[in-house]
Design a protein around this nucleic acid. Structure first.
Length: 580
RNA sequence: GCGCCCAUAGCUCAGCUGGAUAGAGCGUUGGCCUCCGGAGCCAAAGGUCAGAGGUUCGAAUCCUCUUGGGCGCGCCA
């Protein structure tokens, strides 16, 4: 409807240009917004206000000229000038109600658009290190990323969801040593478990699996584990322990233990996310980049740019040339590439796979990492704007008013699984996605659990279930609901019906805005509004107990409502139950 | 110290990229049909949009400064 109005007004503007009121080269964009108050009609534009100065007219005079030039249009009932020069448009009721038919004809397609025009987008999110179960902090990224993927798909992008598995590097070694030490304990060895290794119970489970399947095969005498290291630094001691383990177990044994841990945790995370209604097209291994020399290739590609140099026997990327705070190491003194180097390879790989836009969802603590990543792309002559990084702020956790730590190593976190079991995947997803991603979020676990019944998701789902219930009642009373398409929409007109229809008609616009701005929370708010409009209507009017003609019309309206609720909930990964 | 993010009702948050009288949920107070599901509906109270300047017809929204909070500044990932 907005677009229709824009066309009408553009025609009027053209007319004024021809009449010399406006300069022919004057750039004019007529923007409409939904009027907040009823007395201001349905849509309002400030075009006369913004143009007034350019043509030396007062805004109100110009508004009048525009209105006079406006072509006759059946959808417009009335046009008014208000305030300093707003033009308020009142729509003809009949043309508004047609949306009910449009929605029902479009079915599941309603709200979809071709904004993306088939552009290939890869969205990478969660990507938590596979060193422990996901905690509630990861849940926010998961809910956000997945909803974004759904929104982008609905708006005509070709979307691939990917999880980058950080299965290389020191964190993996710490995982391996943690598993192995617990395993040795099970074998009956006396070992001191370092406090900076992974403390979580899940490590025992993995160790137990190894012990059950292989007995003492990976057992080594614990006295050989002792390292003669004076360094009081716990991290250095841990590294020394890892070195001992590699020697004692041999390459294959060590790889085995590490692999068991990695596989177990990856599988755990994958299952957890599936229960959360999040599925990835691909789990991309960081190690595979190293194994296939793609990291080396990337470093060479970067070197060809001329922004790579050697210092202190390490290889550096001159990222400061592109605005980064300092230059960054890509190959360590030891010869091992940094995490940054494999990340460059990963992003290069995404570009080579033909994605037009790379979307990364990161925790806000990684924001300092963005300039160097963009710099790398720029150095290799890619447009850095093809990388879009969406930062999701931390969710500070509280339990009984106390802040809860979320350290994976210390094993002191609340898992996503726990949360899901307490409140359910639907409530958790809705709760997460309700918040704007760049907004800090206080997550009170006790509140989230105790209020599970007051979560707005139930309010929205209840609206859907209620509509389904009305149709069940209709069936019981042998009321024919098969020909809602033939409903006479001109019978609508109650204020609650107008409000509901207006909200329904805004849905495609909300989806587009949510996708274009990477703001799925808009959809959550829209759905709450829609549910509110419906509940209010439900309370004020009867659907089944009225004359057959009106009954059919109202059923068509609430059926369209049910459809939009289903589509909208689906877009944020929440179910639309028939009964609750 | 430098950089990024944030500050809106008692609490948790929206505010449609600068519009008209700043809105929801929770909590508080009062009300609702013997009828399609009361997980609902209606109403009231609650605000110096952190503070101060600036930009303009017009600012919660844009700019500067101040205050207060979160995060980052590794040859960790």
């Amino acid at each position: 409807m907005k677009q229709r109005l824009q066309e009408r007004f553009a025609a009027a503007i053209e007319m004024l240009k021809r009449d010399g009121v406006l300069a022919p080269d004057q750039q004019v964009a007529v923007r409409f917004e939904h009027a907040r108050q009823k007395q201001h009609g349905d849509f309002a534009t400030n075009v006369a206000l913004s143009l007034g100065k350019a043509c030396r007219q007062t805004p109100r005079e110009l508004a009048q000229l525009i209105i006079d030039a406006l072509p006759a249009a059946p959808e417009i009932a009335k046009v008014e000038i208000a305030g300093p020069g707003f033009i308020n448009v009142f729509l003809a009721a009949a043309s508004q109600f047609n949306i009910v038919g449009t929605i029902r004809d479009a079915g599941n397609e309603y709200g979809r658009s071709n904004l993306g025009a088939g552009q290939k987008v890869i969205i990478e999110f969660v990507s938590a290190n596979p060193t422990g179960p996901l905690h509630v902090g990861h849940g926010r990224g998961a809910a956000f990323g997945d909803s974004m993927a759904r929104l982008l798909t609905a708006t005509g992008f070709e979307v691939t969801k990917e999880y980058y598995v950080n299965d290389a590097g020191r964190q993996m070694d710490i995982l391996a040593i943690s598993v192995w030490l617990r395993y040795l304990e099970l074998c009956g060895e006396q070992v001191t478990f370092p406090e900076n290794a992974y403390q979580g119970d899940y490590i025992f489970d993995i160790a137990a699996t190894v012990h059950r399947e292989h007995g003492d095969r990976y057992r080594r005498p614990s006295d050989k584990l002792r390292t003669e290291i004076d360094d009081p630094d716990l991290e250095s001691q841990l590294d020394a322990l890892i070195q001992r383990a590699k020697i004692l177990l041999g390459h294959e044994g060590y790889r085995y233990v590490l692999g068991v841990g990695l596989d177990a945790l990856t599988a755990d995370i994958r299952g957890d996310l599936e229960q959360f209604n999040v599925k990835f097209e691909r789990w991309f291994s960081e190690r595979s980049l190293l194994d296939d020399q793609r990291v080396d290739n990337a470093i060479q590609a970067l070197a060809r740019s001329g922004y790579v140099f050697e210092r202190d026997r390490a290889l550096w990327f001159r990222s400061t040339a592109f605005g980064d705070e300092k230059d960054r190491v890509v190959v360590r003194e030891s010869g091992a590439p940094t995490y940054f180097a494999s990340d460059i390879a990963y992003h290069l790989n995404k570009l080579e796979r033909g994605f037009d836009r790379l979307i990364d969802v990161w925790g806000a603590d990684h924001h300092g990492y963005l300039p160097r990543m963009k710099a790398a792309l720029q150095a290799m002559e890619y447009d850095p704007d093809r990388l879009v990084v969406l930062l999701v702020q931390f969710a500070a956790l509280y339990r009984g008013g106390e802040k809860v730590s979320m350290s994976t190593r210390a094993g002191e976190f609340v898992t996503l699984r726990e949360l899901r079991r307490e409140v359910g995947a639907d409530a958790a997803r809705f709760f997460y996605v309700q918040r704007k991603s760049e907004q800090h979020m206080d997550f009170d676990l006790d509140l989230a659990k105790s209020q599970s019944n007051e979560n707005p998701v139930y309010y929205v789902q209840y609206a859907h279930a209620r509509i389904c219930s009305v149709f069940r009642q209709a069936a019981e009373k042998n009321i024919d609901t098969s020909d809602l398409g033939g409903a006479d929409l001109s019978l609508l007109g109650e204020s609650h019906e107008i409000a509901l229809v207006n909200t329904l008609s805004r849905f495609p616009e909300v989806v587009e805005n949510a996708a274009a701005n990477y703001e799925p929370h808009r959809l959550a708010y829209f759905l709450r509004n829609l549910a509110n409009d419906f509940h209010t209507y439900y309370n004020a009017h009867n659907f089944l107990g009225v004359a057959p003609g009106l009954r059919r019309t109202r059923l068509a309206l609430i059926d369209a409502t049910r459809q939009v609720l289903t589509i909208g909930l689906e877009l944020i990964g929440v179910s639309a139950p028939d009964k609750m």
